[in-house]
Design a protein around this nucleic acid. Structure first.
Length: 602
RNA sequence: GCCCUGGUAGUGUAGUGGCCUAUCAUGAGGCCCUGUCGAGGCCUCGACACGGAUUCGAAUUCCGUCCAGGGCGCCA
């Protein structure tokens, strides 16, 4: 018997013909005579029925015997006639629910052990702990939700490729075995047998290689690129993850943003058949921080901050005076018509949250009552200043406002955490809105307030917009955000060798280090590197957000857990001494290793 | 490295010092059942993560370890 149809394919138009289905036994129901099997594969579920009254007498015992061996989740093959279900037993929830397959022959292909958790879709779906799902990921993948996520992901990536190919992009694979670079995340490292003591590093991103492709004249490149970063994971961060990586020559920022918007709109059209509004809103870095308290602003709801520093500058309130005197800011947020839902107890909870989770020094609140702002500290403000705050925040009767104060960045970012919390508590965050946006006008460097050390705000290959020695020099870089998540970032790149050297020097590298780590790269720029730029976006994150999943693990077939362990194959694992020997490696982490006088610090 | 939350049959849970040789559901095994679809009925099986402490008595309190998740740091 060979499969003629999938378990999701049969319809009433197939009634009367023979079919052979192969799949997994999801549920079975034996009524003591007539027996049903819900046969499942990734396409759907079809009801298979064994009915002794409609079965040739010679076959009854044999088929009944075989079907008796159909344990849950076993792989089976059934052959039979497609027939209409008896009157009144259609299943409207199932696309195949008008028909059933009357068995004329059945074979057990491979019996399944009892599954460790429920695989079928159930009304009150109870999923096991995630580690159980991970250990038996191949069973977890049989679940409709997981199949759906993988299919959706495949579709998205396919649509991206279609768009990019249509627009003259070339997909080029870049090496997995490369050179460890000093900046950035920790590398995953691969020892070289042929060069004992030397190591490759797995790419954190194909950054340098895609720039080399531009030098090489591949003026439009893309890749579904696997990237590796040996850092602690989060629900949206895995040690290995996938980016849609792009790079273009002879372009300006608008070309890149427009291309990405076109690509995402094309994906949207293919996915949902609707038009996605482009261009996406653009917001400057400073403005994003000051309005939304985040460099990845969630614009699906209001609750924006308003700067109050000037309004309260002369208020005789010691805390604000001290903060403003030290160059800090004061800003406010108005809960507006939802204010009545936040009572005094909730206010106290937010004050606690602000201190504990948002790392704010404190949180000031005021409520608009009888036309004036009142609170426990209102007495420290003059009526004129209170009126100024009220007007700046557009506070109306009953409105609750929160005031935050402190150093510019930390305070706004803390406020952003608070803002999100309030929005979630008040149910202001719509889960069916997908708001893309661009964050632009970022600084080139981030200066450590203590050491004065310069760090690249994005990375040191971003084209500076001006004199790199000037204070607050900008970089030609941009982030794409979706619903408060950073999806990816891109930039125009430096294509001048001298400038590249100068930027690397600015972030603290010596001439020797620059030569050793990036000499080859800078040399390449010297051979007519074209002006170029590009972007990389996290595919896992995009898919997870679009599907409303809480973690990217749910859209990755075989993810690793929080400790970067694969519960399925139990990696990482020690390797044989023989292999270590061949690589001329010595493991200091091995059990019971006698280090003798060997000092590991030297 | 740090902080928080959790760990009870295969799975999901109840359980706040004695009502616990631990609840319920699901599952698995057995029997019954000819139109169900998470079929149903009856019976059976099966668990307190590990180590220590407190106590007359610990699933329950405390300490440590391990495991899982969320977060901080980290992630140019």
């Amino acid at each position: 018997m060979r499969r003629t149809d999938t378990c999701g394919g049969l319809r009433s138009s197939d009634i009367g013909r023979r079919a052979c289905l192969q799949g997994w036994v999801r549920f079975s129901r034996d009524h003591g005579g007539v027996a049903f099997v819900d046969l499942a594969d990734r396409y759907g579920i079809t009801q298979v029925v064994f009915d002794p009254e409609d079965t040739a007498e010679a076959d009854v015992d044999r088929i009944a015997g075989v079907m008796g061996t159909f344990a849950r989740e076993s792989a089976v093959s059934v052959e039979g006639i497609v027939r209409r279900r008896v009157e009144g037993t259609d299943d409207a929830r199932n696309p195949t629910g008008e028909v059933e397959l009357l068995v004329t022959d059945a074979v057990l292909l491979n019996r399944s052990a009892s599954p460790p958790f429920e695989i079928g879709d159930q009304k009150e779906g109870v999923l096991p702990n995630e580690d159980t799902r991970m250990r038996y990921r191949y069973l977890d993948l049989r679940r409709t939700e997981m199949v759906g996520a993988l299919a959706f992901r495949s579709r998205v990536v396919h649509l991206m490729r279609q768009y990019l190919e249509r627009n003259s992009f070339l997909e080029v694979e870049t090496p997995m075995l490369g050179r460890s670079t000093p900046e950035g995340a920790r590398d995953y490292v691969v020892p070289s047998r042929r060069h004992p003591g030397k190591f490759y590093a797995l790419p954190q991103s194909p950054q340098l290689f895609k720039q080399m492709l531009m030098v090489g004249g591949i003026d439009r490149y893309y890749q579904i690129a696997r990237c590796f970063r040996d850092e602690d994971s989060r629900k949206d961060r895995q040690p290995e993850f996938t980016q849609i990586d792009m790079e273009m020559s002879f372009v300006d920022t608008e070309d890149i943003l427009g291309t990405v918007e076109g690509m995402i709109a094309a994906v949207w059209e293919g996915l949902y058949g609707t038009e996605l509004e482009t261009p996406f809103p653009r917001i400057g870095y400073r403005e994003a921080i000051e309005r939304f308290g985040s460099d990845k602003p969630d614009m699906r709801y209001g609750l924006e901050f308003v700067k109050l520093t000037e309004v309260v500058r002369d208020a005789p309130y010691e805390i604000f005076k001290r903060i403003i005197g030290a160059g800090g800011i004061v800003a406010g947020i108005n809960l507006g018509d939802r204010s009545s839902e936040v009572g005094r107890n909730e206010v106290d909870r937010y004050i606690q949250f602000a201190k504990d989770k948002a790392k704010l020094g404190g949180l000031t609140w005021m409520r608009c009552e009888d036309g004036v702002l009142t609170s426990n500290i209102a007495k420290y403000f003059t009526p004129g200043i209170l009126e100024g705050i009220k007007q700046a925040l557009k506070a109306e009767e009953g409105d609750l406002v929160f005031l935050i104060a402190g150093p510019w960045k930390a305070t706004y970012e803390g406020g952003g955490i608070l803002r999100r919390r309030i929005a979630e508590d008040l149910g202001l965050v719509p889960d069916d809105v997908f708001q893309f946006s661009w964050l632009v006008d970022c600084p080139m460097f981030e200066v450590d307030p203590v050491s004065g050390k310069h760090d690249a705000f994005h990375h040191p290959f971003v084209l500076p917009e001006g004199d790199i020695d000037a204070k607050d020099v900008g970089g030609a870089c941009f982030d794409i955000c979706l619903n408060g998540n950073e999806l990816g970032s891109g930039s125009l790149r430096i294509h001048d060798a001298g400038l590249q050297r100068a930027v690397l020097k600015k972030i603290g590298m010596s001439d020797e280090e620059i030569e050793r780590d990036f000499g080859w790269f800078i040399e390449a720029l010297g051979y007519g590197a074209p002006p170029h730029g590009g972007i990389a976006m996290g595919v896992d994150r995009l898919i997870a957000i679009l599907l409303g999943r809480d973690t990217i693990r749910d859209v990755i077939a075989f993810p690793k857990n929080k400790k970067a362990v694969s519960l399925l194959d139990n990696s990482p694992e020690r390797i044989d001494d023989g292999k270590l020997e061949e690589l001329q490696l010595l493991s200091l982490a091995a059990d019971g290793l006698d280090l003798g006088d060997f000092d590991i610090d030297e």
